[in-house]
Design a binder for these strands. Structure first.
Lengths: 209, 209
DNA sequence: CAAATTTTTGACCGGTTGGACAAACGTTAG
DNA sequence: CTAACGTTTGTCCAACCGGTCAAAAATTTG
C-alpha cells in the first residue's frame, strides 16, 4: 500500500483525468485486449509516449479506472436504508440503478467486460468488499421480510435480478435498440423500462393481502 | 449464397467440429480480439497452419460459431405457444432460459461478448430475424393481456427482463459465485435462482384478484 | 502397388502492439 | 539569466499475431 497520495502537479492531474476519460471510452467499447494504447492516446489528444509518461503500463490505466468505478458503482446499494420504508427503498434502488445504466453506460460495459472475462483483476474485491456489502444489505432485506413488509424470497437473488435487469439496458443496449426499432428504441425506452420494472418488482414483492 | 453444402470429407467434418468446440471455449473466455489462433489451435490439439487449412480466417470460425449459436439460442422463445396456458408458458420459458444459462454458459458469454462490443457482426440479424421473432411473441403476450390472463405491462421489456435475469447467471457467473460464497455458490444456486425467478415473475404477472 | 488427393507441418512474412529511451522542449524558481 | 525540473516527441525494439507457402506426410483411389 502507498501510504500517502503521490504528489502531482496540476498538469499531471489534468492529463491523468484526460487519459482516464479517453480510456473509459476505448476500453468500454473494445475491451482491455481489444484496445490499444495508441487508440487511447489519440482519444486523449496526445502521443503514445506522452501517455506512457503518465501511466507506465496499459494495465495501470485499467486498474485505476476499475478502482474508481467500483466505488461509484456500488453507491446506490450502499444507500439502501434499513430505517426507510422497504417498498420505497427498493423502488428507489431500482430507479437509481436504471439511471446509472442510462447515464453511465460506458462504466457499466467496462464492468461487464471485466466480469465476463472472469474478473481476473477484481476477483479479490468481489469476494471481499462486494460480498460484505451484499451480505449486509441482504440481512436488511431479510429483516423486512421477517417483519412482513415484503414477500419472503431470496434476498441475494433479488439483488442479482435488480442488477441484471437494470444493467441490461446499458450492456445490451444495441440489442434493446435493435428489437425495439427506430421508433420505440428512442429516448423513451428508459422510462418504459422504469415503469415495467417497477410493476414487475413491486407487484411481485407486495405482501399478500 | 452457396447453394449446396460444400462436400466435406470425414476428417474435415471431425476437425471442423473440434476447432469450433475449441474456439467456443477460447472466444467465450477472452472475446474475439482477445483470442489468438494459436490458442484455439492448441485447444484443438493441432498446429496453427493446420487449423487455417480448415478455416481460412479467424473471422470465419467466429462467424460459423455465431450462426449456429443464434438458432439454438432463440429456440426457447420460438417454443412460446400462444395456444398454451399463459402463466405456464411463461414459467416454462423462464425455466428453459435458465437451464440454457446453466448448461451452455460459454454460448451465453460468446453472445454477450458480441453484443457488448456493439454486435458488429450480427447487428443485421438482430434487427431482422430477432426483432421479427420478438415482435411476434410480444403480440402473443399482448393477446394474453387483453384476455385478462396476465397483468397488463410492456411485453418487450418483459422479454428483456427474462433474458437479463437468466443470462446473468451465465455471464456474471464469477460475480454470483463470489457474492454467494463457497457454500451457497455451489451447484444449488440454479435451483435457488429458479425458485426466486418464478416467484418474482409469476406473482408480478398474476392478474388482479 | 502407384498415382492422386488430402492433411499436416516448419519456416517465413508484414503489420501491429506494448513499451523503452534519449533528446528536445517548456516551465519555474533562485 | 540559468539551472533544475517537468513535459513532449521521434525513433526504435522485441514480441506477438494473422496469415502464406512449399514441401513433407498421410490417406484415398484406381
Amino acid at each position: 500500500m502507498e501510504g500517502s497520495a503521490p504528489r502531482r502537479t496540476r498538469i499531471q492531474q489534468e492529463k491523468r483525468e484526460l487519459i482516464l476519460e479517453a480510456a473509459l471510452e476505448v476500453f468500454s467499447a473494445n475491451g482491455f485486449r481489444g484496445s490499444t494504447i495508441d487508440q487511447i492516446a489519440e482519444a486523449a489528444g496526445m502521443s503514445k509516449p506522452n501517455l506512457l509518461y503518465y501511466f507506465r503500463r496499459k494495465e495501470d490505466i485499467h486498474e485505476t479506472l476499475m478502482q474508481r468505478l467500483l466505488d461509484t458503482w456500488l453507491a446506490p446499494l450502499r444507500e439502501l436504508d434499513d430505517t426507510g420504508d422497504p417498498l420505497t427503498e427498493l423502488r428507489s434502488y431500482i430507479r437509481r440503478k436504471l439511471e446509472m445504466a442510462r447515464d453511465f453506460p460506458r462504466e457499466s460495459r467496462l464492468f461487464a467486460n471485466e466480469i465476463l472475462q472472469g474478473a481476473p483483476r477484481i476477483k479479490p474485491m468481489l469476494e471481499g468488499e462486494l460480498k460484505t456489502l451484499v451480505d449486509e444489505k441482504a440481512a436488511v432485506i431479510k429483516g423486512w421480510m421477517r417483519a412482513g413488509k415484503i414477500a419472503r424470497t431470496d434476498p441475494w437473488h433479488l439483488i442479482f435480478s435488480i442488477w441484471a435487469t437494470t444493467q441490461h439496458y446499458a450492456d445490451f443496449d444495441v440489442q434493446v435498440r435493435a428489437v425495439l426499432g427506430a421508433d420505440r428504441g428512442g429516448d423513451g425506452r428508459f422510462e418504459d423500462a422504469a415503469r415495467f420494472l417497477e410493476q414487475l418488482f413491486l407487484d411481485g414483492l407486495k405482501p399478500k393481502g
